[in-house]
């Protein structure tokens, strides 16, 4: 059994033939070769697979590709500018050592961008609460929270976090 899905991924329209049971994360990784979105747990717990679907962050391991029919999907690959300039949140993660092995990072960054969009001036505890769906086994979260606070500030200012952090 298979069906056709059409959606916009990182600004580009894509149409593919998939099995109905194909998860969105597998669609992105295996059909579109966008391997920046990770699979950590596959049980809806860790958030390594977070992407934006119509502007909301979701766990792409817990959504079928067919459920995103007609939607606009953004993955970590779609965040930086066309010329390669990092998104302020990505720049803030680099500047503040918000990663060690980097496995959780794409999901962390996608969740962080979504939470700052809703709440441009989050407090530290709001950042921690907003990242409850993302697990990191390396950093102890401290620098991730620092990075998100700096990224939020840079997003407000519309400038790279590296400059904002000086």
């Amino acid at each position: 059994m298979s069906c056709t899905v059409t959606m916009t991924v990182n600004g580009k329209a894509v149409t593919r033939e998939v099995e109905e049971r194909t998860l969105l994360v597998h669609f992105l990784r295996e059909h579109l070769a966008l391997t920046g979105t990770h699979v950590g747990c596959d049980t809806s717990q860790c958030g390594a697979c977070v992407v934006h679907v119509d502007g909301r962050s979701v766990k792409s391991c817990t959504m079928l590709a067919v459920q995103a029919e007609g939607a606009s999907v953004t993955t970590i690959e779609g965040l930086a500018a066309a010329d390669g300039t990092l998104h302020p949140m990505q720049a803030a993660f680099r500047e503040h050592h918000g990663l060690q092995c980097g496995f959780c990072t794409p999901g962390m960054v996608m969740s962080a961008v979504d939470l700052v969009k809703d709440n441009p001036t989050p407090t530290e505890s709001e950042v921690r609460e907003g990242l409850e769906g993302n697990i990191c086994r390396c950093t102890g979260y401290h620098n991730i929270v620092k990075a998100v606070l700096a990224g939020a500030e840079a997003m407000r200012a519309g400038e790279p976090a590296a400059a904002a952090a000086e």
Binding site: S44, G47, R56, S57, V58, K59, M63, D114, G130, G133
Partner: peptide
């Protein structure tokens, strides 16, 4: 309920 991503769906 759950986390931000669970609440979105």
């Amino acid at each position: 309920i759950g986390d931000r991503q669970v609440r979105a769906l």
